[in-house]
């Protein structure tokens, strides 16, 4: 693996991870795209040495075709995922007028209740008392 591939993988993964932790779905999708490219480079760079295209009859050392086949599949699957994710973002926009991932309502309610009970000095919320 060359130092350049190494750095490229590092940057792609870092940038991808960073984008994945965003709230905007478009940014998340960009993150998926970047990190997906990172994975593809990773598999090729670590799975085989550079060489000639693996077509029998070509001169020289042929590159390992298996990682290439795996990555080809991964590229297409990545495209499928991205397409669906962007449609999801689009649908989100047509509903809410933004593409942000809202927090889960029920979870927030539990959090709020837990905070309340903490304030009230361990008095349980009426709803929580067993019936």
């Amino acid at each position: 693996m060359s130092i350049w591939a190494f750095t490229l993988i590092a940057v792609l993964f870092a940038v991808g991870s960073y984008l994945l932790m965003e709230r905007s779905l478009t940014r998340v999708a960009l993150g998926v795209g970047v990190i997906g490219n990172g994975v593809n480079v990773l598999i090729i760079a670590s799975g085989s040495d550079a060489g000639e295209a693996p077509i029998i009859g070509r001169e020289g050392v042929l590159a390992d075709p298996l990682p290439q086949a795996l990555v080809l599949t991964a590229i297409v699957i990545g495209f499928a995922l991205l397409t669906f994710l962007m449609t999801l973002a689009w649908r989100n926009w047509t509903i809410t007028g933004n593409d942000e991932v809202e927090d889960d309502v029920e979870d927030r309610m539990i959090t709020r209740r837990a905070e309340q009970t903490a304030k009230l000095g361990d008095e349980p919320h009426p709803e929580d008392v067993q019936t």
Binding site: V39, S46, G47, L70
Partner: peptide, 14 residues
């Protein structure tokens, strides 16, 4: 999850 999995598969192949 998919990313991690395919990464793991790729590295295992490597």
């Amino acid at each position: 999850e998919s990313v991690v999995l395919v990464m793991a598969v790729g590295l295992i192949f490597a």
